[in-house]
Structure formats: structure tokens, C-alpha cells
């Protein structure tokens, strides 16, 4: 279960650059498709690349009231945290790069880091809009973490009951053993409920409409990001793009880890290539339904409405899913 240094370094570079590129490409699709759904033409697909390039060469302004080192540090922390998660996620037919060095619980914690970094950055900016945004992000974080944690742990626990002795909190193991075929009808109902709650958590985790409350352009003028500009903003932008890939890769790893190479009878390099392409399609489908369609179809909610939504119905749904999985085991 050890990883060679060279593999780790080269794999890491490929994963980092690949996910950055992919995140920006998918962001381009997101904007183009959302525009078409809204009856607009939309920007060209490469617009996110233009945006990042432009931001990189723009002046990086630090407000007078800001705590400079925190303000400048948080974009780096945010980007580093989301990039690190990628090392623990199975990507396509490939096992996680750091498989064996961390598991689902670590991913859960790392997922909270970008949000925390934005909160700290927001407070450090010393602007009232950023402060309000940071407070809202905190409430959001407290709201969606519980259903998210229930979902991840339930899946791993049910798998542990089926494969005693296996390291079921490792995403590689979860992805290699899709639960759908191993549980009874009650378990399938439970899994569906858990999948739905994870899909609802996804746009909240990504701060997309209807959950873009911490940024809320018309209310608090960009909130957390109000004071960020230039290179710092570019890093948050990239972190956001990569996080989109991370969240959908997590959904794919937990619930739809199937490949098409084996059923098609393909093997070797061609099979791996086909599976990688299929993985990209799966990620796109998840993004399409959890981010693009949702953000086109809803108005922004208020922070208390979001808290109520996640604490009551979504937590209840996740718990119900867990109970169904438990019942499936007992019966």
C-alpha cells in the first residue's frame, strides 16, 4: 500500500494541473449551458481561462483594515486543501494516489477547509460585507456538514458489515465495491435517500444558487470575496473550480463507481482510457444536475431558510437512509 516517491510527485502534478484545467473547462460549460437555459448566448467556453489569466496579472489589493498575512494566506490554504482531496479520490479507473494514507474521514475534514479558509479570509478582510459573508458561511458550514457526514459514514459502515476486515473507509475500497448490488431492497431505498441528501449538499458545499448566500452579489456585494482581487481572487476562483470536480468525484466514487470498459470487454490501456473518459462524463452529469440545473431553477434562499432545510428535512432524510441501511442489515 505504499506509493513510490516518483509516482506520487508525477501523479500529483498530473492530478493538480489536470483538475485545474478540467475545473475551468467545466466552469466554462457551466456558464455556457446556464446561459442557454436562461435564453442568453453566454461567454465562450474558454472564458474561465481568460478570467484566471486576467486576474493573475491584475493588481492584488489588500485593504488597509485587513490582517495582511491571513488575508493573503487563505486563498493558498483553500486551493491547497481542495487539491489535496484529489489525492484521496479514485479518479476514473485509477486508484487514489495516496490510497492508504488517508480515508473518508480525512476527506470530510479537508472538504471543510476551503470554507473555513474563506471564513477566515472574510473576517481578515475587515469589510462589513465580508464579515456578514463570513458569518453566513459559518452557519452554512454548520448546516450541511451533518447530513454530509451521515451519508459518508453510513455508506462506509454498511460496506464494513458486508466485507468484514476490509478497510472500508478507504475510498478505493468503496469505489471497488459498489453497494447497490450487495444490499437488499431496503438498502437500495436507504442508498437512494443518502444519494439525494448528498446531491442536495453538493450545491451548498460549492456555494452555488440557491445556496450562494455567503457571496450574494445583490445583498452583500460578493460577501467573502468582496475585498479580494488579482492573484488572491484567482486562487479562490481556481479552488472553486477544483472543488466542483472534487464534490462530483466524491458522489461518483460513493454511488456511481461503475466503469464501462469491463462490460464492453476492453482491457489494458484502451480500457483505462475509455474508463477515464466515462469518468469525465459521470462527473459532468453530476455537475449538470447538482449545479447547473439547480442554479438556473431557483432563487437565492436566506441563511435561516438554508439552516432549517439542512437541519430538519435533509438531516432527517440522511438519518432515514442510515436507518434503512441498518434495517437492511438486521432483516
Amino acid at each position: 500500500m505504499t506509493v513510490g516517491i516518483a509516482t506520487a510527485v508525477w501523479g500529483g502534478i498530473v492530478v493538480l494541473f489536470g483538475s485545474g484545467l478540467l475545473g475551468l473547462v467545466y466552469k466554462g460549460f457551466d456558464r455556457k449551458l446556464a446561459a442557454h437555459m436562461q435564453g442568453r448566448i453566454g461567454p465562450p467556453l474558454r472564458q474561465p481561462f481568460y478570467d484566471v489569466t486576467k486576474l493573475m496579472i491584475k493588481e492584488n489589493i489588500v485593504p488597509d483594515h485587513a490582517v495582511t498575512w491571513l488575508f493573503n494566506g487563505m486563498p493558498v490554504v483553500s486551493l491547497a486543501a481542495v487539491a489535496t482531496i484529489l489525492f484521496y479520490l479514485p479518479l476514473g479507473g485509477f486508484a487514489p494516489l495516496f490510497s492508504g494514507y488517508g480515508d473518508l474521514i480525512l476527506v470530510l475534514y479537508l472538504l471543510a477547509v476551503p470554507a473555513l479558509a474563506m471564513i477566515i479570509g472574510g473576517f481578515a478582510a475587515g469589510s462589513p460585507y465580508a464579515t456578514v459573508g463570513a458569518q453566513r458561511e459559518m452557519v452554512m458550514l454548520m448546516s450541511y456538514e451533518f447530513p454530509l457526514a451521515i451519508t459518508l459514514v453510513s455508506v462506509a459502515w454498511r460496506l464494513a458489515t458486508i466485507l468484514p476486515g476490509a478497510h472500508t473507509f478507504s475510498l478505493a475500497v468503496i469505489a471497488a465495491h459498489p453497494l447497490w448490488g450487495m444490499v437488499g431492497p431496503l438498502g437500495v431505498i436507504g442508498l437512494v435517500l443518502l444519494l439525494i441528501s448528498l446531491l442536495v449538499v453538493t450545491p451548498a458545499e460549492l456555494s452555488k444558487i440557491p445556496f450562494d448566500i455567503p457571496e450574494a452579489e445583490t445583498e452583500i456585494a460578493g460577501g467573502l470575496l468582496a475585498e479580494y482581487s488579482g492573484r488572491n481572487l484567482a486562487m479562490f476562483y481556481l479552488a472553486d473550480a477544483v472543488k466542483m470536480i472534487v464534490m462530483s468525484a466524491l458522489v461518483v466514487a460513493l454511488f456511481i463507481p461503475y466503469g464501462i470498459a469491463a462490460p464492453l470487454g476492453l482491457a489494458g490501456a484502451l480500457g483505462a482510457f475509455i474508463d477515464a473518459l466515462f469518468f469525465l462524463v459521470k462527473i459532468f452529469v453530476v455537475i449538470f444536475f447538482t449545479v447547473i440545473v439547480v442554479r438556473v431553477g431557483f432563487a437565492r434562499l436566506k441563511v435561516d431558510q438554508v439552516a432549517r432545510l439542512f437541519w430538519l428535512p435533509m438531516t432527517a432524510m440522511a438519518l432515514l437512509g442510515m436507518i434503512f441501511l441498518a434495517l437492511d442489515r438486521i432483516l
Binding site: M37, Q38, R40, I209, T218, V296, R300
Partner: peptide, 13 residues
Amino acid sequence: AAHELGFDTLLHL
């Protein structure tokens, strides 16, 4: 009004 609610789809339509 739709835009102020964060409902840009309705704004554009």
C-alpha cells in the same frame, strides 16, 4: 425583483 432575489433565470426571461 427576480435579480434581487438571486433568480437570474427569471430576470433574463
